[in-house]
């Protein structure tokens, strides 16, 4: 089956092609976009195991990933069981009225999943023990973050360690869109950081961490669409709300002791070329920051865990 390969000039075909109906499992982040009235969209990227659609709308997520079960379950994803038909970049699509239409394919959600499930209470002592374990595992891994040694990355680490909003925001603004690829390393780091601050902050009752997450999120999402790729901008918006891929959520559960950390981290680190390592770095900075904020850190020069 071929979808959406007809020339774009031929907008209205003489005969409507037979529609193929399929169903899948959608992130609840997509519920509003899906249930609002139909909007045009276009294929932003296409791979054997996934298609990214950019919806012409202001609301987020404005990029929707339609992926098979083998792909990473991004927080803006609709997961389908069957292989996704071939489709070319730039092809027309639409989203709304409960349906995602890509070429002749109509997709409906038969299941909804939460991309930001509550982590539940987490023991700060356990988290503190998990940090060096995670650091060691990351250091040992051959998968390296894309911005190792980068000044802005260092600044973010320091800013968070000191709970310095100013330095954090300065670093964050430098990091948005920094690095190559569809999801630049800077964005992945920030996404990991935002998700860790929010979930681990909530899980430990560390209000300052959630507060920091709110401010950093506002800073990075403010003009993300203009500063990075559309998919990365959407993922930052998701991260701002604590929404993340299954791999990231598994590491958070691992840190909280709800599943084993090592395989979860191993799996995360395998993502992409540097994405997994970038996300993991962001998570480490976030975890370290939450611990510091709990310890009453945050005064200039008072951060003790700058090693993340």
């Amino acid at each position: 089956m071929t979808v959406g390969t007809r020339p774009r000039t031929q907008r209205v075909p003489a005969r409507a092609p037979a529609r193929t109906h399929a169903t899948g499992a959608a992130s609840t982040a997509l519920r509003r976009t899906l249930e609002s009235s139909r909007r045009p969209a276009r294929v932003l990227a296409a791979f054997p195991a996934g298609v990214y659609l950019e919806v012409r709308a202001d609301l987020e997520p404005h990029v929707i990933a339609v992926v098979t079960g083998e792909a990473t379950r991004l927080p803006n994803a609709m997961v389908v069981g069957d292989p996704i038909p071939r489709v070319s970049v730039g092809a027309d699509a639409s989203v709304g009225d409960g349906v995602i239409e890509i070429g002749s394919l109509s997709l409906r959600a038969h299941r909804w999943w939460d991309p930001a499930p509550p982590l539940g209470p987490a023991d700060p002592v356990r988290l503190a023990q998990a940090l060096p374990v995670m650091t060691e595992l990351c250091d040992r891994s051959p998968k390296r973050p894309g911005l190792e040694g980068n000044g802005a990355a260092g600044l973010l680490t320091e800013g968070c360690a000191e709970a310095s909003l100013l330095r954090g925001i300065m670093a964050a603004e430098q990091l948005v869109g920094l690095g190559p690829g569809l999801t630049p390393s800077g964005d992945d780091m920030l996404a990991g950081l935002l998700v860790a601050l929010r979930h681990l902050g909530t899980a430990t009752g560390t209000g300052r961490a959630v507060w920091l997450a709110d401010w950093l999120a506002a800073a990075v999402t403010f003009d993300a669409r203009g500063r990075t790729t559309p998919i990365s901008a959407t993922l930052l918006h998701c991260a701002a709300r604590g929404e993340a891929s299954g791999e990231v959520l598994a590491v958070l559960r691992g840190l909280a002791g709800r599943q084993s950390l090592e395989p979860a981290l191993h799996r995360l680190l395998q993502l992409g070329h540097t994405s997994g390592a970038d996300l993991a770095w962001g998570l480490r900075i976030g975890l370290s920051s939450v611990l510091d904020l709990r310890d009453g850190g945050g005064e200039p020069g008072g951060g003790g865990r700058g090693r993340a």
Binding site: A45, A46, F47, P48, A49, G50, A65, V67, T68, E70, A71, T72, L74, A77, V89, P180, G181, L182, T183, D188, T229, L235, L271, G272, H273, T274, S275, G276, D278, L279
Partner: peptide, 13 residues
């Protein structure tokens, strides 16, 4: 490699 929709999709950009 058969897995997809990872974050780094340089092939596309």
């Amino acid at each position: 490699d058969g897995r997809a929709a990872e974050h780094d999709v340089a092939a596309v950009t």
